[in-house]
Every structure is written in structure tokens, then in C-alpha cells.
Design a protein around this nucleic acid. Sequence first.
DNA 1: GCCTCGATTGACT
DNA 2: GTCAATCGAGGCA
Length: 175
Amino acid sequence: MRLKRAFFEKNTEIVARELLGKILANGPVAGKIVETEAYFGEKDPASHASAKSKKRSRVMYGPPGHAYVYFTYGNHWMFNVVTEQKGTAGAVLIRSLEPLKGIEFMKKRRKTSNLLELCSGPAKLTSALAIGKTFNAKSLSNGPLCILDSKEKPSRAKEELLRFYIKGNKFVSKK
DNA sequence: GCCTCGATTGACT
DNA sequence: GTCAATCGAGGCA
């Protein structure tokens, strides 16, 4: 079941925690979210929204439940989910996934057969799921890209600053 | 226009 | 452990 807008229209930190265990899917390719990181607006120096940027962080101020895809370091994409209500900046960075569906597709795109290397990093998972600039500012409520609910409860989530991950999951990115 | 740097990765020593 | 790859946004002129 696809997550509704109300799920994202909450405090960024809460959404980041609750996203753990959910399924990120792009068409036939999907993975379980095992690591997230919260980014706020003006208060967070690490967030793009704290800088006086317009174009780049525009999506973060928009309605929740939309994708915020950011390009950096010349060849890397980051996938975020916009949170908070419209007008308030907030986003959750998806840092790593556990491959579930379309694994062969991922291997082909990532050019590796190592399961642990497919989605264990923010830029790796976008490559594995074929997420690019075309998904920026796109809604997760319709279209191929979406986040699915799961029965799993994020009770084992561990918090480290604004980063959340499922304790003991091997697909969590290191560092 | 020109310059700098980034929510990273992977190849190499 | 170190470092290059590589491009668009943002700052400055």
C-alpha cells in the first residue's frame, strides 16, 4: 500500500524514523529503506534550505510526499522525500536500501554483483533504481516512483544525530 | 562569463 | 589512507 500524503506531513525527524522499513519502489525495482537522514530548513546548517538558495531548495518548501532529487559531485544523485506542510522546509535523505525486487536490474545498472554494494549509499541507490533529475519535484502519490507501507515496525531503529538506521542491518552504509 | 565547491563514490598507493 | 572524477548552482564581476 502506497503511503499517503499525511504520512509525510509531519515533523521531519518523525518521518525519518518512520520511513525505516518502508519500501522505496521505482516501477519493478524496489528496496527496503534501512537508513535515513533528516534535513530541516533554516536551522540546519547542513541543509540546502539553510543557504539562501532558491531553485535548489524550492522543492523542500513545497508540499510533502514529493521527491527531491539533488545532483552533486559531478555524477551523483541524492534522493530525498519532502516532509512538513507546504511552506515549511524539510526533507529526509534516503541513505541506503536493502535490495528486494529487480535485483538483476540493479546489478546491471551498478555493474557489480555484490548485493551489499547495490544500494548501500545515497548515490548508489539512485543509480540502482534509475532515479535521476526527471524525478525531481515529482509526487510519490502517482507515477512509477513511490514508497510502500510495510508491516515491519521500526522499533529497532537507532538514532545517531539526525541519522536513523535499522540496527544490525548489513545494508546500512558505514561511516 | 568565470571560479569555487558540494548531503559521494570508487580506484589506486 | 589518499585523491580524482565531473557538473550545476551560487557568488561575484
